[in-house]
Design a protein around this nucleic acid. Structure first.
Lengths: 216, 216, 216, 216
DNA sequence: AATGAATGAGATTTCATTCAT
DNA sequence: AATGAATGAAATCTCATTCAT
C-alpha cells in the first residue's frame, strides 16, 4: 500500500464521471457549506455565490435543495460501498477482517470528512422517503461490521456480547475521528490508525481484563 | 443506589429552579424541537406554537433565538458538571475511576438524551463568543476522563497510547448511545451499561490481545 | 325603494362586521386588483403596496394568496345570497318572480361589478376543494332562477324549452352587463334595467314571435 | 348543409397553412393551456413541455409570450371573420339575417370553444397596442349583429330599444354556451341551437309580451 | 406577561428570455 | 431549429424581531 488516498479515490471515478462541470461545482460547494454550517443554515444563494452563478441556475442541475442534499448523501453512501468493494481486492489490506474494516473505515472517513459529517448530521433533514433510501444503505454498510463481529465471535476470535451494539459502539468511535482531526496537526493519520485499531481490537478481545465490579 | 434516574435529577433541581413557568416551558419546547429538527430548522413560531403562546411572548424570556440555544447548552453543561460532582458523593458508584466515569456518563446521557444531542449537534450554530464559553466547559468535562486515563496509565492500570485521543474515542463511543437507544426497546439500560463498560475497560486494558499484524 | 344601492348594502354589514381594518383593506385592494388584472397576474407585493404595508404583513390576515381569492369569492357568494333574502322582504320589488329576479340581479351586479367579475373569471384559479365550495353556492343561486322558470313554465306564464339552459342564457346575458357598463356613461342604470328586463321577459314569453324557418 | 363542423373548418385552412409544424404545435399547446389555466398562469416552460421541446425553442417561432397570445387572438378573430364571409356563401344558411347570425355564431363558438374563451378572458392581458388591434376586429364582428338589429328594427321586423346594448346582450348570451357545453352531454348541438335561436328571436320580437310593471 | 400586527430581510423557487453550441 | 445552461428579476411565503396595547 503505497498511498493512503487510494481508498476513496477508486470509487470516485465511478459516480463523478457523468456529471457536467457546473453540477460538480454545485455539489462541491454544497458539500463544503453543508458540512460547515449545516443544511438548514445554508441558503441556495450562498451555494450559488460559492459556485459563481445566479441562484436560479442551480435549478438546472438539482430540482430542489432537498434533492441536492439527497444527492450528496446517496453519492457518498454509494461511493463508500464501492470503495469497500475495491478494498476487498486490495492485496495490501490487513488479513484479519476486523483490522481490515477498521483500517478501511478510518482511511475512508479521513479522506471524505465532509461527506461523512453530512451523512451523520443531516439525516434528520431528509424527507421521509429519502431518509429511508439513505438509511438502508447505511445499515447495509454497518451490517458488514456486524457480520465480521458475529462470525469472529462464533469462531471465538472475538468476544462480543451483542454484535449490533458493538457495531454501533465501534462505528461511533471511529466516525468521531474527523470531527477533531486536523490535517497537519500533531497526529499523523497512521498514528491515529494505530491507536484506534489497537483500541478496537482490545475492546472485542476474548478475555477478562478487569474484575468487573457490577455496573448498575 | 435504588433508582438509575438519580444521576441527572440531582443536578436538575439547581437549574430548573430559576425561571418562571413560561420560561421553563419555552426551554422544554425548544429543547425537544431543536433535538428533533435542529436549531436552524426550527422557527421561533414553532416554539411559540408548542408552548401555546404567540411568538412575541418568547422575547419576554429570551432576548434572541441564539440566547435560547446558548441557555439550553450552557444549562446542560452546568447540569452535567453538577451531576458529576454529586456523583462523587454517591456511595454506590464504582470504585474504579474509569468505571465510575463511564457508568455516570452513560446514565446521564440516557436520561438527558435531547440535551446531549443538542450539545453535540448545535455547536456550530453558536456565535463565536457563545461557542467559546460552551466549548470550555465541554473540554473541562472531557478533561476529567483524560486525567483518569492519564493517571491510570501512569499507574499501569491502563494502557493508552494518547490519553486525549483515547478520551475522544471513548466519549464518541458512549455519546453515540442515545442516537439509537429507544426506551422500551429490546435492550435495558443496565444491559447497555454492561456492554459498553466492558468494551471500554478492555479497550484500555494493559495487555496485548491479538498479535498485531500491521495496519498500514 | 328610495336608493338603488340598498340591494347590496344590506348584506354587506353582515360579512364585513368582524374583520379588522387591515384585513378589510387587503380584501378591498385585492378585489380591485384581481378584477382589473386577474388573480394570476397580481402579486402579493402589488396588493401590499396598494394597502401600504409590507408583503409579509398580508400573511397575518390571509394564510395564502389562494385563501385571499377564496375569501373574496365566498364572501361575494354569501353576500349575494344574503342580499337575495333581504330582497324578498323588500316591498318595492316587482311582483312577478322573473321580473323580481332580473331586477335584483342587474342591480346587485352593477353595484358589485368587481366581485361579480372575479366570481366569473377566477373560478379556474381556485384549487379543487375551494372550487367545489364556491361552485356549490353558485349553483344554488342559479337554481333560484331555474325554479322560477320551471314554475312559471308549468303555470303557462312562460314558455321555456329547458329551464336550466334558459337559466344559463339569462344569467350570461345579465352578467355580461358589468363588463361594458361604465358609471356616468350614456346609459343610466334604470335604462339598462328596462332594456334587459324587456328582453328577458320576451325571450321566455309564451308565444311564437316569428315563423321559425329552420335552424340546422 | 351536411355537417355542422363546416362553419369553422372552411376558415381554418387559411390560418393553419402559415407556419411550420412546430409553430403549429406551439400554438395548439398554448391555446389549450391558456384556455384552461389562463395566460398569466401558464409558463413558457409548460408550453414547451406540452410541445415536447425545450423552452428556448419556442423563441424560434414567437418572439415573446405576449406575441404568442396576440397571435392566437388575432388568428382567431381573422378566422372568425373569414368564416363569417364563407357563411355568406353557404346556401343552406337561414334566410333571416338574425337567424343566420345566431346560427353561425353558435356553431362557430362551439367548434372553437378554446379560441373563443381566450378571446374573451385574455383581453386584459394584451398590451395596449395589441389590445387595440384585437378589440377593433371584435367590434367589427359585433357591428355585424348591431347592423342586422338596426336594419331589422327600422324595418319593423324587430323591436329593440338600443341596438348596441341588444347586441351585447345577445352576444353575451350566446358566447356563454361553450362555458357549460360538454361534448357528449345530454344536449345535442342542434337542440342548443334551437333553444337559443328561439330565445333570441323572441327577445327582439316586435310585441309586448307582458304588461311591464315598472322596474325601479 | 402576553397579544396581534407590523417590519425588513431573506428563504426557495419560478419566470421570460438569451445565447453559445 | 433545437438544446442546455445561464441570467436577472420576481414570485410566494417565512423569518427573527419589535412594539403598542
Amino acid at each position: 500500500m503505497t498511498d493512503t488516498s487510494t481508498v476513496a479515490d477508486t470509487a470516485a471515478k465511478t459516480s463523478e464521471s457523468k456529471g457536467n462541470k457546473t453540477a460538480r461545482r454545485v455539489r462541491a460547494a454544497a458539500l463544503s457549506l453543508f458540512a460547515r454550517h449545516g443544511y438548514a443554515a445554508v441558503s441556495m444563494r450562498q451555494i450559488a455565490t460559492a459556485v459563481g452563478v445566479q441562484p436560479g441556475a442551480l435549478y438546472n442541475h438539482f430540482p430542489t435543495k432537498q434533492d441536492l442534499l439527497k444527492d450528496l448523501m446517496l453519492t457518498h453512501m454509494q461511493d463508500l460501498h464501492a470503495a469497500w468493494r475495491s478494498w476487498q481486492d486490495d492485496a495490501a489490506r490487513p488479513s484479519d477482517p476486523l483490522d481490515s474494516f477498521v483500517t478501511f473505515h478510518i482511511r475512508y472517513h479521513l479522506e471524505r470528512a465532509e461527506e461523512v459529517f453530512i451523512a451523520y448530521m443531516e439525516l434528520r433533514n431528509l424527507e421521509p422517503e429519502n431518509f429511508r433510501e439513505i438509511e438502508e444503505t447505511r445499515q447495509k454498510y454497518e451490517a458488514i461490521l456486524t457480520e465480521i463481529l458475529a462470525a469472529g465471535s462464533a469462531a471465538g476470535r472475538y468476544e462480543v456480547k451483542d454484535a449490533r451494539v458493538t457495531t454501533r459502539a465501534i462505528i461511533a468511535m471511529l466516525t468521531g475521528i474527523p470531527t477533531w482531526y486536523r490535517e497537519g496537526g500533531s497526529l499523523s493519520r497512521p498514528t491515529i490508525e494505530t491507536i484506534y485499531l489497537d483500541m478496537v481490537r482490545k475492546s472485542v478481545a476474548p478475555m477478562r481484563c478487569h474484575t468487573p465490579e457490577g455496573g448498575g
